[in-house]
Design a protein around this nucleic acid. Sequence first.
DNA 1: AGTGATAAGTTATCAGTGATCGACAATCCT
DNA 2: AGGATTGTCGATCACTGATAACTTATCACT
Lengths: 215, 215
Amino acid sequence: MTSPSLLFPGARTPRKPKGQGAERREEILDAAQTLFAQKGVHAVSTRQIAELAGISQPALYAYFATKDDIAAELCVRAFAILGQRMAAARAAYVLTPENFERCLRVYIDFGLDHPDAYRVAFMLEKSVDGSFLEKTGGRPMLAGREVFAVFVEMIGELHAQGAMAGEDVMAAAQSLWAGLHGLVSLLIARPEFPWIEREALIATHVAMLRRGALK
Amino acid sequence: MTSPSLLFPGARTPRKPKGQGAERREEILDAAQTLFAQKGVHAVSTRQIAELAGISQPALYAYFATKDDIAAELCVRAFAILGQRMAAARAAYVLTPENFERCLRVYIDFGLDHPDAYRVAFMLEKSVDGSFLEKTGGRPMLAGREVFAVFVEMIGELHAQGAMAGEDVMAAAQSLWAGLHGLVSLLIARPEFPWIEREALIATHVAMLRRGALK
DNA sequence: AGTGATAAGTTATCAGTGATCGACAATCCT
DNA sequence: AGGATTGTCGATCACTGATAACTTATCACT
């Protein structure tokens, strides 16, 4: 079959207007963000993303090496927001136990506000041979580690104040992080569980973690 | 293409001997268990399971409606083990804070021993329309709920002893479960994170949860 | 204006996935 | 012996992520 332009020269093909540099990339990310939020990352196909972005499916691969890279990019961006929020919550006040709780809540609220990014960073499957995290260089996880570093700083400061329950700062930070992650990830993964009222649950959990971590 | 049996009638097809009732089913589950443990659930295809089980891929569907059903069955079986272990740990001693910690460890050890079952029950994606949990009737999650009920009982008993930090038994149980789940799921999902030595981390975490939950 | 190079999109296609269908063989019951 | 049932298989479907080869638009430069 010959090209339509040989039969009808000039503007016969229904091609979309050309993307101006980085704009196409943003359009793709916007489309993916929308779909991921609607159906979850792994239920969205590259064709669906492409259609919503107004391009053909292979055109995605001019901007992203894999589908997972799209999710990773969204994830890194979301975690940049979390880093800012946590740094702000930590910098705005003197580090008291009350403000400590405030930072924990910032983490929880972020996870619930950005469930897909949170999933990509901390819940997605990492198979043995050459899958997601290797392909994307573990960037989402790295973004998460920066956030974890804020926990370490906070706990180190509280330890210096003599407010910590234990002596091992790193152990306390990892345990605290795990405690927060548990609530966030369960609420994301199993929203249909008969949870008690959410605000009460978060308050109970944060209080428990504080009692467990501080003197 | 004509069937080989038309050219060479009689026993020309390399068909495997017929499975005797439930045996085939067990062979399939064994094969799936092995592969899931090696590569992770979503990296294993139905063809791989069938090959290891010594049957053709469509034959799987005589025993299981979907691939997820296979994972769900393995998950339910694994959780039956957890239920037994927790009931045993709870029944073996008078419920003291020390034995409370022991039960928490049983949960953690189980999750780390059966990461694939744990993933299916509490970490897998539940997309909006008609996916895993709907298809399988949420059986893995139900198995998990029975385990959660043991937590509620334990905490109720401790509350009656006046040993609980708060007043709301259900809130404390959900918070405690989330705290445990956080450590298990993070260790499963992100083993490459620079964790401190595992036994020390578990000990720190269990101690923190105990301090947070009990008086 | 005409030229080649580059960038951006397209159609067509690939191998692999979960799942289904119709045909065939083994077994059992009468 | 023969018919029905049950178990299994090859072929195939629709779909997935990803790639190849080709076409077109745009730009720099003479």
